[in-house]
Design a protein around this nucleic acid. Structure first.
Lengths: 245, 245
DNA sequence: AAGTGGTCTAGACCACCCG
DNA sequence: GGGTGGTCTAGACCACTTT
């Protein structure tokens, strides 16, 4: 029930409209017009429009020029958003954990250095963990951070969410990540870690996470068991417009 | 080189800034201030801000309150966007095609009816195809559309991009899609279609595509060979704000 | 013709960063 | 303190849909 408070007027309008919809509006019902909402709140129309822009982007409402703004016909409203393993598992109703966490500092090397935009000699923190959900091993992860971003990271720190530690202890906010998802079969070593037969099918996910400035902050390679994990996302179709060729 | 023309002023500002960056600005270089750009174009500051909003969302620039707007440090700017198989393959420099296309109309049934929000008795067009890239089979796809959206769809129509046909012939614009990506091993029948050994690892992708109003327009189940396909995407971290619990 | 969303203007004040 | 981005106002005109 708790909404996260935000000081802006447009956010309060957004929440009001979400409540309107939850209060019983059906898909394709028309919302109050922008001018009605502006009058009701005594805000400018532009402020109301910003709230509706957000809801439209999230797929909650759609707008038809000349006709009005309507509730979307969406049963599921999943996300194309980056979540940490911990957040992901909690969202699925499971309890996240870690096993066999190991942390060491070593030179980046070619592959990791290239991905993080560092010299191969620059030190990185290498974190290797087996991530669990309700105690069941789900994925084996090797994650690398520039050491100067997270000096003194310990094995106790990485028992839970790395993203939370980065934010709370080091002030690093991850904003976006590029991922490449491939399929593979598990090598015997990984299979044993994950407690499945050797050569079981699995996801192989390579991720480079970046902060708001686009600077690479984390490079990770993970192997997820295919029998216990699937990847869900919502993707948007590109609007007509593009950068140069 | 060709930019897609758009009538809005903010779009012209956006393109101008993209050109500025391409003309030699380096990551973390500062852009002209919003007020400078507004003066230069003789537009209002809000119009300039809309252009910068777009560029910020796309990860091209970042803004620091009190300091300025800067070029992002991003080597790769991939997308979290929905592309058709044909577009996807062309983007990878390959030529898309289809084999064994088969089209039939039949009742939706429970699973497809549920996904498309139709009665199980309502007719759907079932399209089954093997998609190829440079003549190599990449995926086997079963796709279902409500028949009333695409009456008279023929096997010749589905040799190429279904999304393009939907737009050009039926006026249906797909805006977003929910996808569930899992791993599997290929059954012998699929393996033969895709010309790989039986029990090779593969992606199993289930997709429900929707138009701007959120109405389900397409339900598809695809199997992609794992040795020739990987899934790349960029995901954004959720801003702090949320709907009700 | 009336009403809707789409775009834009010319200001204003605030919070924040930097020299 | 001066300049930056963040938010907001009270209008205006346009393109479009609906009656």
């Amino acid at each position: 029930m708790a909404e996260i408070a935000r000081a802006t007027k447009s956010e309060s309008v957004r929440q009001h409209i979400v409540h309107l919809i939850d209060a019983g509006l059906q898909p394709h019902d028309r919302l109050p017009t922008e001018r009605e909402l502006a009058d009701e709140f005594a805000y400018s129309r532009l402020t109301v429009r910003r709230a509706l822009d957000q809801l439209e982007h999230d797929g909650i409402v759609y707008r038809v020029q000349g006709a009005g703004t309507f509730v979307s016909d969406t049963r599921i409203a999943k996300s194309f958003e980056l979540t940490s393993f911990s957040e992901d598992m909690r969202a699925r109703g499971m309890t996240p954990g870690s096993q066999s966490a190991h942390v060491e500092v070593r030179p980046a090397g070619m592959k990791v250095g290239y991905a993080l935009g560092l010299s191969p000699m620059e030190p990185v923190v290498h974190i290797s963990r087996v991530r669990t959900a309700d105690g069941i091993p789900i994925c084996s992860e090797d994650c690398y951070l520039p050491e100067r971003l997270a000096p003194g990271l310990s094995e106790e720190d990485v028992a839970g969410s790395l993203y939370e530690i980065l934010t709370s202890q080091y002030g690093v906010e991850i904003e976006r990540a590029d991922q490449v998802i491939a399929v593979t079969v598990l090598e015997p070593a990984h299979a044993e870690q994950l407690q499945v037969p050797a050569f079981s099918p699995a996801f192989h996910i390579v991720r480079t996470s970046r902060d708001g400035t686009g600077r690479a902050v984390e490079y990770a390679e993970s192997v997820y068991r295919g029998d216990r994990y699937s990847y869900e996302l919502t993707v948007l179709r590109r609007r007509e417009a593009s950068g140069p060729a």
